[in-house]
Design a protein around this nucleic acid. Structure first.
Lengths: 233, 233
DNA sequence: CGAACTGTTGAGAGGCTTCAAGCCTAGTGG
DNA sequence: CCACTAGGCTTGAAGCCTCTCAACAGTTCG
């Protein structure tokens, strides 16, 4: 699948909403906007692949990406998602390593590419930017550590319930309490770290227990309290 | 268990070997040394507990700590170890959150406490310090992501073999190929994310297969290649 | 010297995975 | 816009890996 190179509108490339750039001086923000390159990417586009060399990081101004690692036998492990207001590819870039994850569009997205030089310029000239950057990485590290504990100690059933709740918190529900992110059963399995069939069976059980309702990929959360209990939170 | 407050020698508190401080200006390094507080901690001492408020971070100049989270039913999940030249407690400090891990001494240690104010001072005044700090967090995040993939996809047998290899890389072997870190079977289980009994059984199997040799807590690696193969690396 | 902790082994249960087969949905191409 | 087809979804059966419980040996330390 190829990435679309269609230009998104000026408005869709606006970075002023990003918390990370809030403390930039006017001149720095102009510099940033001058250096950025924004593109529209269709569902299925690969933004960067594990092992590739990165030239900058990306700001998501629209859509959703999944960030995953390829493990045993090519089985993918989803590390996180990235949505509007979040940045991707910065970890490998800061470490000056080859990308250790792959980023794929799962909902049509607009991304702004910021060159490495610009990142370095901001780090060198604005300590508040560095500080903010540190806080972003630290937050992600905390989440990763939490997830290690969960995945190591909880059953698949508990983890699946927890993932549903985490998805609810990240992507919200619509008016009918339906998760606003559409994932395949396999993708759910690749977050939880289990087999696709196990996810299917457990979702059916949750449905029987009246905690959720299923309509294709749409998952409606009927009883978040019960789910929280199952998740052992 | 209480922490010892015995003062270590001046020499044992030397921070000039830390990569993180390499780029400090002379004045900043003097400032750092003025602000630091070094102590000797006996095996079993708790440096900080999950949920406690941190006043600074610690530089390890001697000994080994284990950093762990308390999960279901109080079962501990070891996130990482910290040895000479490494820093701990910086993640929660930078995020200005309560500690989300506990740090415990497993081999008599000397730690230097650096107050939050000093950390902030360095971030504000020395971009190379911030940059280095970013790289440290990024490295840890990478390791955490790698571990999520392993723990989600590999069998306990594979993970245990991998952990032995990782321990070898972090703590080296002595002249008889014996791991230079002493862990209980339970601690090994708490890294791998399994039951103590499973670790015991698998270690016996590795021994039968002539990959390792056991003498109490001493583990001698006889065939690293075979272990690597088992680990599926 | 005993208490408390650590290590070991066995048995049994059950959660999950794997394989296989068939159905269905979603997205493509005509 | 619709038909088609590949990939996604579902269910069942079999079996293994791992956990839990339990009993006991060994070790360490006060």
């Amino acid at each position: 699948m190829k990435s679309s190179l269609k230009r998104p509108s000026e408005e869709e490339c606006d970075l002023s909403g990003f918390q990370l750039f809030k403390k930039l001086k006017e001149q720095e923000f102009i510099h940033l906007n001058y250096d950025k390159t924004c593109s529209l990417y269709k569902k299925g586009s690969i933004i960067y692949r594990e092992g590739s060399r990165l030239t900058g990081f990306y700001c998501v101004t629209r859509g959703i990406l999944k960030i995953y690692k390829t493990g045993i036998d090519g089985k993918e492990q989803i590390i996180r998602f990235a949505k509007k207001g979040e940045i991707v590819a910065y970890r490998s870039l800061l470490s000056q390593e080859l990308a250790c994850t792959t980023a794929k569009v799962i909902e049509e997205a607009v991304l702004c590419h910021i060159p490495y030089q610009t990142l370095l310029f901001l780090i060198q000239n604005n300590w508040e930017f560095s500080h903010h950057m540190l806080q972003i990485v630290c937050k992600e590290l905390r989440e990763a550590n939490d997830y290690i504990t969960d995945i190591a100690q909880k059953t698949v059933r508990e983890r699946l319930a927890e993932v549903l709740i985490l998805l609810k918190e990240s992507f919200d529900l619509d008016t009918t309490n339906t998760l606003q992110i559409s994932l395949t059963r396999e993708e759910l399995a690749n977050i939880v770290g289990t087999a696709t069939e196990s996810v299917i069976r457990l979702l059916s059980e949750f449905k029987q227990d009246k905690m959720i309702e299923l309509q294709g990929r749409k998952i409606k959360l009927l009883d978040v309290n019960a789910l929280t209990k199952v998740a052992n939170l």
